[in-house]
Design a binder for these strands. Structure first.
Lengths: 229, 229
DNA sequence: TTAATTAGTGTTATAATAACACTAACTATA
DNA sequence: TATAGTTAGTGTTATTATAACACTAATTAA
């Protein structure tokens, strides 16, 4: 019989690509590394997988400890396994990506402000390990996914205007979207509903506030509905 | 500094979902397990990851040893990491899926015929570990992928007729496709080209033989072309 | 009250998709 | 050698989805 101990085991880490959106630009959360190797370089939030947790649980634990947030949208991205991706030895990384509204996020008090930082996705610093590659894969996945699954809402406040939602999509997809067509489609899809409220206090017409209709979305999915932007 | 040996390491295996198509049905290659646990049950071809190989290299090595084939279409599927997915201990599985024309495949002489077997995907036996779940994820991925990437060709002979290609798509997607629309679209896409030959010796009109135009496909992709069925 | 600013709204041309039925070529056999 | 049986191959049209486009409405500040 094969015994587990007959085979050498790699180390396994979890790395998270955390996307945030502050209303202006898509950003990524990076951590300044305080240890060798790659001391003082920027890295994805990550850590070693514990034996008593699943990779997803591990990702949530790590995100909680680095950002203080739980319950965020999280999805497995890919497992990176180049033999020399970590100079310390053989380390597999199961990568996840997460979506966060950074305005809802309080970076943990215990962590020095300089250690954890948001970077605009177009202005990333040099990163350690193969994290540049992981980020690239994550961004491509986000871009593809956002057009056929209503995950963009995770990056916004609970209540948002259609203009805000459109700006977010333009920001992720890096292309302009026609306002009238966008509104028509998103409203026809029935995945968002009006709250009846308006956002006032601006120097212009008060826009209507909408929210994601999760219940309705689940029903639509059951009927075979496919979200599409 | 973090040292790798400070952290417990899980075992890591590679499991492969091998899809085959014999002209009639989509099939899966399973292996009859000769060891505990799950002795005598059917499993996905798999094995432990070696420290000196990447997960993909490992998958190719495993497939080569179980099927004798190399150079097959292979793609990482997902990493399965339930804490109790293997009764022997903590084992992560990095799963891959592969596409094979089973008529090109000679099962290795060294392996008893009963040990390795094709099963129609609609008539699978009970499988060990969480392999049922892995298979389900793989089939969903294949179904989605086949509509926007020309990977179906991997399951056919180098030269094939349009009718064969259409049957394959109907088989994977589990729905009828209009013959004229299918031909129009696949030919307009330019990813296949006529060989000029015909397949004769049947009791009916000799169909034209086509082949996948890989060079042309790569060019089209560079120009931003998206395959679509 | 007026200017500035962003929100909100429909129509039409164009392109993509889906539905549909016959003729052509080859083989077997009467 | 004519005919029946079988699968290959071919275009057109209606329907639906997409893309392009410009003005009016509401609010605030000056």
């Amino acid at each position: 019989m094969d015994e587990l101990q007959d085979y050498p085991r790699p180390s396994v880490t979890i790395d998270c690509v955390v996307f945030g959106y502050d209303g202006i630009a898509l950003s990524l959360l990076l951590i300044n590394r305080k240890e060798a190797p790659f001391i003082n370089m920027w890295t994805l939030p990550g850590g070693f997988l514990f034996l008593e947790e699943t990779p997803e649980e591990s990702a949530r634990r790590i995100l909680k400890s680095k950002t203080g947030l739980n319950n965020l949208y999280l999805e497995q991205l890919y497992t990176f396994g180049d033999v020399k991706r970590d100079p310390r030895g053989r380390v597999l990384s199961v990568a996840y990506y997460a979506l966060v509204d950074p305005r809802r996020l309080e970076l943990l008090a215990g962590i020095a402000a300089n250690d954890v930082k948001w970077f605009e996705s177009s202005k990333l610093p040099k990163t350690a390990f193969d994290h540049k590659e992981i980020i690239k894969v994550a961004y491509n996945r986000l871009k593809a996914k956002v057009t056929y699954q209503p995950i963009g809402f995770e990056l916004l406040d609970k209540k948002f205007t259609l203009t805000e939602l459109q700006f977010l999509y333009e920001c992720i997809l890096q292309r302009p979207i026609d306002k009238r067509n966008f509104r028509k489609r998103i409203l026809e899809s029935k995945v968002i509903k009006s709250t009846g409220e308006k956002r006032s206090g601006q120097k212009n017409r008060a826009p209507e506030l909408f929210e994601f209709d999760e219940l309705q979305y689940k029903n639509l999915v059951k009927e075979g509905f496919q979200f599409k932007i």
